[in-house]
Nucleic acid binder design. Structure first.
Lengths: 336, 336
DNA sequence: GCTATAATAGAAATCGTATTCTGAGGGAGC
DNA sequence: GCTCCCTCAGAATACGATTTCTATTATAGC
């Protein structure tokens, strides 16, 4: 059972090792009788080729890397990522690829991802999620010609491949809806200021205000980290203003829900005094009281496009579209 | 840049390829001067060894597999898994291992995991999560002597290694608390009946009833799949009884929250008419109204123990403890 | 001064598979 | 009947690192 390599199969089938390899790779240049003889032995012994040897020989590992630029702690509570991971695993599997997941928090892991995953050729390509807007390493990857796809960040010149929600459109959708339903003092609760999502959705928010002839008030825009405490204090900052906002567009559902709690604690009624819209349409939305209106991003579509794009790059095909945008839609519930 | 292997380094440093390897592996049998000469070239060119070649030669990939036995859709919404994945990635990284994640839903992926990950030696070992109580494949893995660790299932004879929450104790904790606070008609809302967690927590629930001299009523025990609809109908079944339960111990927070919604729709007040306790202490608990009391399982501890145990197995050390139990604690909030 | 021994580095084998190169055999065409 | 080509399978090599084996040099001990 231990010594199970092509050489053993070859000996038992009375052929050469090369022939075994050819049979397994479906090489047409091999006689029917031999093929069957080999396959019989393979079947019987349950032989499976060694991926390590295949990797070295073919220079391909059939392994994709997914790097999430978030601290494990904040990643932990977020259902968006388990969805994303699950969907990418599923998609990659359809093309016979596996997925290697990494987070990039500590200095060690930052280095690790770029050095250990890529340069060591441990993976064939990378999907990078939520990398910061300016990341030197991305330039380096690009320069070295390594296949990778960004999710949640794009390159203005399309020098690198990316897949993203239509963040500008999504924020526009949310803000526009609030304005059309009579809200006038709409605030924006963003994530960390360095993230592309934060910036893009802010732009969609501004554009919506403009299209309704509502002035943009910078004091109605605040930023928070991905943790409840930070979200709470940012919300408090908004609510203390005079007059306070009558609606908040939050960067994601977690932030929106944290804001909802804070608002309640301040005696604010949702949605009467304050309308709230989140992003991601996570399961959470159904569970909070009132149920959270949210902009849905199609995670399966996002995952599928990113995976397919990366595989195109890995396999040397020039992708038709280097930048893919996945549309969003508003899921109306009770909070707005 | 493309041709970067030890042979190149060797040529430039004027030494043999074997020496380069020795320097990089920290072999003491190498002269100071040569060592420095090699390291200088390595530094300058930014050489990093090829993991594929190392894998073949050393028969180790330094890659661990994490297999989650859940359909991607139900996995999607569950923050428990993003937490688990994040923590295992983190822990594995401390020992210079990477993590390959897979889900096991379709027939293809079922086969894929055992054949493609293990037999192909693509990974050095596996962590299996939420596998069913009776899984033939686990026996096979065990028989073939492949290193693996189970999370959420244990083997009665400790033939296989496992790490798990103290599920029996945890359910006891929750049920006991409800009984001590005056509840008398405590129901149990389980997950799929085949899962070990479902079974173990049921046992803890029964033991607690017993210790309080409360009779066990099978009609107060229902099972649901991991989706809101299934949870809702199971809850409805409980609430229709006469008399209805005055408390529910749910298998996890998602189920508890689904039950909470259903109860509210039936005009039940939580916690006055119905107390609720969930499991996992997920971020959700803080966000629902009333905040959900939940039994906390220490995901980081779970992840750390599982990872360390697996690495011990992979590296051929006999682990001191083949079965590790991580204690649980009750986080009291407003729902019970 | 000569051998025994240690220290050190190069040469070569190895890991298991894919593929190129080579050669044997057979059939077609003239 | 001979050449030419085609088919097919075995031999040999390459992938890039690790490690064993071997050879060289220097040093110590007598």
């Amino acid at each position: 059972m231990a010594e199970l390599k092509q050489a053993e199969i070859a000996k038992l089938a009375g052929v050469s090792q090369a022939t075994v390899s050819r049979v397994l790779k479906g090489d047409p240049q091999v006689n029917m009788e031999m093929r069957e003889r080999v396959l019989a032995v393979v079947q019987q012994l349950g032989y499976v080729p060694d991926a390590r040897a295949q990797s070295l020989r073919s220079q391909r590992t059939r392994l994709l890397g997914l790097v999430i630029h978030r601290a494990p702690e904040t990643l932990a509570g977020d259902p968006f990522f388990s969805a994303l991971i699950a969907m990418i695993v599923e998609q990659a599997g359809r093309y016979d690829y596996h997925l290697c997941v990494d987070t990039a928090r500590t200095a060690r892991s930052q280095r690790a991802i770029y050095e250990e995953l890529l340069r060591t050729r441990r993976v064939d390509g990378l999907i990078l999620v939520e990398s910061e807007t300016h990341d030197r390493r991305i330039e380096r990857l690009s320069r070295e010609g390594f296949p990778f796809v960004l999710i949640g960040r794009y390159d203005p010149e399309d020098a690198v491949c990316s897949v993203d929600n239509d963040n500008i459109g999504a924020a526009f959708l949310a803000t526009d809806y609030l304005l059309r339903t009579g809200r006038r003092r709409v605030a924006y609760l963003g994530g960390p200021a360095g993230l592309t999502v934060t910036r893009d959705r802010l732009q969609g928010y501004k554009t919506a205000l403009e299209s309704h002839g509502v002035g943009y008030d910078p004091s109605r825009v605040v930023f928070a980290d991905f943790n409840p405490r930070s979200a709470a204090s940012a919300t408090t900052e908004l609510l203390r203003q005079n007059p306070p906002p009558d609606a908040i567009v939050a960067l994601d559902d977690m932030l929106a829900i944290a804001a909802m709690r804070t608002a309640k604690q301040h005696g604010c009624r949702v949605p009467d005094d304050l309308a709230l819209i989140g992003f991601n349409d996570s399961p959470l939305c159904e569970y909070v009281e009132p149920r959270l209106t949210s902009v849905a991003v199609e995670i399966p579509t996002l995952a599928r496009k990113a995976t397919e794009l990366l595989i195109e790059l890995v396999e040397g095909r020039e992708p038709s579209l280097r930048r893919q945008i996945v549309p969003a839609r508003l899921v109306k519930r009770d909070s707005a």
